[in-house]
Design a protein around this nucleic acid. Sequence first.
DNA 1: GTCTATAAAAAGATAGAC
DNA 2: GTCTATCTTTTTATAGAC
Lengths: 199, 199
Amino acid sequence: MTAAEKRSAKWKARRDEIVDTSATVFARQGYHATGIAELCEVNGFGKGAFYYYIGSKEELLAAIHDRVMDEVIAGADRVLASGGTPPEQLAMHGEELLDVISRYPDHVWVFLHEFPALTGERADQFRTRRRAYEARIEEVLRAGVAGGDFRDVDVWLTARAWLGMHNYTYLWLRAGGRMSARDAAAPFADIFLHGIARA
Amino acid sequence: MTAAEKRSAKWKARRDEIVDTSATVFARQGYHATGIAELCEVNGFGKGAFYYYIGSKEELLAAIHDRVMDEVIAGADRVLASGGTPPEQLAMHGEELLDVISRYPDHVWVFLHEFPALTGERADQFRTRRRAYEARIEEVLRAGVAGGDFRDVDVWLTARAWLGMHNYTYLWLRAGGRMSARDAAAPFADIFLHGIARA
DNA sequence: GTCTATAAAAAGATAGAC
DNA sequence: GTCTATCTTTTTATAGAC
């Protein structure tokens, strides 16, 4: 590791810290309602330092979105690699998604609320990634219907029901709270799998 | 009806128009991202006219919240008055809620995203009303468990699952769209009622 | 790397003419 | 009722010292 790389790694680590603390502030009071000055105060430095790490306020918002989508897609990849049956995979998708929400509740709050503040190419990028994740859920449902585990539901609509049920936990689910991701995911899977099981 | 009342009724009608058109703009680009100047442009008048109808930007936001909560509570009251069984009531709650979402998708978008922009007493008021609605759903679930229609689920958690599944439709459900509120509510009730039915 | 000072634009809201 | 002009504050971002 060269000297330049060491400097870069330290810079990146500090930048990640700023992204994380900013997510917390954004989640409490909103993206547009939070000024750069307040982010500096929370992080304990001035504007000069802030712009040394962050290119712009919107770039900061994009970094928060990245954290969420990276984690969510990684979880979905693990499900795909597991090779379970459609009911097993759907339950596992729930565990993975709630795990991300419980570990990054503030980032997820920002992700679900402040997407419209992203513009141009950045907005397109996250729209595409989100759709790709939703398509994974639809794929599992389609496989379950084809294989006879699930009855002949409207796959698109059923995916939205599943996504809503799970995403909505961002309002209360967090690591260290009274209910773990796994504790919530199990009854959710129970409801949903019984709900669409072949009669 | 006196002359003063006529003037007042006209004022109120025009004000409602402004509230509704503003909800559309807020839903597209966010509350804080939208300036008073833009709202004036959309409504086809200047700031003078705007402040003749609207006391402040936050008052406008509260009016949008009011529209949503008034409609949602009215629907819940109809369910309560219907006197059906818990499964019937839960399905009816779904129809009523999706009906509001499909008729006021922009208002609901604002309601679900921009609540943190409300301050003080106004925030307290809507927090309370929202909790009261959620308690209605929990009540139906509790009655269904007690009466033996539903198995012994965690009522609080199951209510959140139901709320998430239904609220999340704000992203796509709208009157005149490819799917009506009733078309979506029926499969949702199917999934959910099978999901929590006594084995 | 972090500071302070400042630029440059935009925000919410008000005043007074008509 | 609606206009334009303006007040006051705040915003994001940059410049240059240290």
